[in-house]
Design a protein around this nucleic acid. Structure first.
Lengths: 188, 188
DNA sequence: TTGTACCGTTAATTTTTAGCAACACAGATA
DNA sequence: TATCTGTGTTGCTAAAAATTAACGGTACAA
């Protein structure tokens, strides 16, 4: 477990170095959670108390359309943050599901604790601001790729950008992420 | 001009109330800019010194693909923020263009001033964190709509959600935003 | 005024993708 | 062991959208 905390500290340090005293405050508020493959981290319609930093494992965030088809918003693996950020922030029921593609472990951060950290340690406010910014940029890139590229180009770019992810994610889920059927993906 | 500053203050107050002293600090750092229809706010490959709050007017943020086709990321009108946030934050050349669909006026905020405000006035850090969060959520919704809905559904939802925007934006630009050709949009 | 460029629409054709069905294969289970 | 379920692939057909072309309307400039 110590090892996990060290990794989280290192993750934060990529954006801002914390003193030992500050880290003491920060590390105290995270709680640990462990889930098996196929278990839900977040279920639609339910409140979302936390955002989650992934210690180990792999999750998918997705919505189900009127025909029961799954559409994947985000894959998240080690050192990624995941949650339904809208539900989390605005204390409304979740609009999406997040479940585990592999057995996974998380550090959980409650909204009040997040606000508390931002208030107590301005550096953490900075950290979350930058993280949020990065998330925004990633989504913007994704929209551009959905608008500009063909499904095949999207697939090739994904392979180039996150080859490790490809190996861990079944192709039918990649298809649901790229916005095509698994049959279409299979023909690339 | 006083009127414009009042509107900006009101816009910020929707997230956090500033004291007169704080507002004095904040208002001081914004500069004014005015552009005519078709003029560029941001050009690809160039550095992006500011993010922009729109006092009046309408802009589009877009990328050009290999075939010279335009794909629109964002329309922004009165009281919206716009910029190439990646280029702005990381001081790298812009990946997109932003130009004016109508004559437009802006308040400009430089990166250093933004950092300064966040540092001096924690409330402003809070403000930008929340704004960024909102932006993130909007993009996430957009991705879901690109993945789940047909182009026709996307169009109808846009009409329902932003009827004013529809009236101000030529249909060929709406098509570039929805991810279809103008001929396809014309058949809905 | 005439010309010119752009815009929105419609039609015909082609390309792309979805939907459905069948099948091989692997891993899990009884 | 035989069976069941989920996954990835392929063939065929149907639907959706892009492409190309044409046409009328409008704004703008020479």
């Amino acid at each position: 477990m110590e090892q996990h905390y060290l990794l989280l500290r290192k993750h934060i340090a990529e954006i801002c170095e914390l003193t030992d005293a500050e880290w003491d405050i920060v590390s105290r508020v995270f709680t640990y959670k462990s889930l098996k493959k196929h278990q839900f981290l977040i279920q639609k319609e339910q409140l979302v108390p936390c955002e989650y930093w992934i210690i180990k494992g792999l999750t998918k965030a997705y919505a189900i359309d009127g025909n029961g088809k799954e559409h994947i918003l985000q894959f998240a693996m080690e050192q990624y943050w995941t949650s339904d950020f809208n539900a989390f922030q605005n204390k409304v029921p979740a609009a999406i599901f997040i479940d585990c593609i592999e057995d996974s472990e998380f550090f959980c951060l409650k909204w009040e604790d997040r606000e508390y950290l931002c208030h107590e340690i301005p550096k953490m406010g900075h950290f979350f601001r930058i993280k949020s910014h990065h998330g925004y940029i990633a989504l913007q890139q994704r929209i551009l790729s959905l608008l500009i590229e063909t499904a095949e180009e999207r697939y090739n770019n994904l392979v180039k950008k996150l080859p490790k992810l490809i190996q861990r994610v079944p192709k039918k889920l990649l298809a649901a992420y790229l916005g095509v059927t698994r049959e279409t993906l299979s023909r690339f």
